[in-house]
Nucleic acid binder design. Sequence first.
DNA 1: TATTGTTATACTCTATAACTATA
DNA 2: TATAGTTATAGAGTATAACAATA
Lengths: 140, 140
Amino acid sequence: MPSRRADPVTVEVVELIGDVVARYHTEYEHVAASHQLTGAQARVLNLLAMEPLPMRRIAQKLRCEPSNVTGIVDRLETRGLVERRPDPADRRVKLAAPTEEGLRTADRLRESLDFAREPLAGLSTQERTALRDLLKRMLA
Amino acid sequence: MPSRRADPVTVEVVELIGDVVARYHTEYEHVAASHQLTGAQARVLNLLAMEPLPMRRIAQKLRCEPSNVTGIVDRLETRGLVERRPDPADRRVKLAAPTEEGLRTADRLRESLDFAREPLAGLSTQERTALRDLLKRMLA
DNA sequence: TATTGTTATACTCTATAACTATA
DNA sequence: TATAGTTATAGAGTATAACAATA
C-alpha cells in the first residue's frame, strides 16, 4: 500500500462533514437547553415519544451502558416528562413512557429542531434529492 | 405561517444527516479511545498540532468555557503530549503546544481518522465533487 | 478597570462492578 | 443460571462564580 492519503476532494468532503456534525451538535444542544433539557435527555424523550421502551432498549439505542439510562430517566421522571410502567409480560422489565406533558415537550422539541435544521431550505427539490441519494450511498 | 412541516425529501435528508453525525461521532470516539484519549482531548491535541494556542482560543474553538480547557490540557500535559509555554508578548497568556510525542500521536490519530472516515471510497470522483458542492451550499 | 488563566463547586454523562428481583 | 434494572463508585466534560497575576 503505497499511500492511503486521500484525494483533495475527499479531504474537503470530510472537512465539510466535520462542519455539519459540529453545527448539528451545537444546534441540537441549544434547542434542548431552550427546553431545560440536556442533549441526552432530549434524545431519550424523543425516542420514547415514538414508542415506550424497556430501559435496556434505550441503552441500546443510545449505545451506552444500561446503568446510565437509570439516571437519565430518573431526571426526566422528576420533571414529570416520563414515567416507568411495569411490563405485564415480564415483571423484570420497566417500560419508560412519556407523560402527556412529555409528549407535548417532545412535539415542541421536534418543531424547534425542524426549524433549526433548515439550512436545507436553500436547496432545490432536485438538489435535496441528489444530496439524499449521495448520503445514502455514502452510508451504505 | 400555515405550516413549517418539511417535505418528505427534506425529512429524509435530515434523518440521513443524523445518521452521518452519529456515525462520525462513534468513529471519532472510537479512534480517540484506541489512543487512550477522550474525544475532547483528541480534538484539542489535533487543534494544537496545527498551531500552539492560548487557553482562551482553545475554549473559543471548542465553544466551551475557558475553565474547562484547564482540565483538558492538564490531562494532556500529565500524559506528556502537551506543554504550557509563556507568551513573550503578554505574560498573562499561556500557550498550549504539543510536545514531540504529542505531534506523533496527533499524526497517528489523523491517519486513523482518515481511514475510519472512508465510507466515501464507494463514491466516484464526480459524485464526491457533487456531494462537496451540495454540502457547501447547505452550510453557506 | 479589563483580561487571562485558574480554582472551587455542582451537575450530567459515562463505564465498571456488585446487587435485587425476576425468569 | 441468566436477564432486567438499580446502586455505588470513579473519571471526564460542562457551566458558574470568585480569585490572582498582568495589562
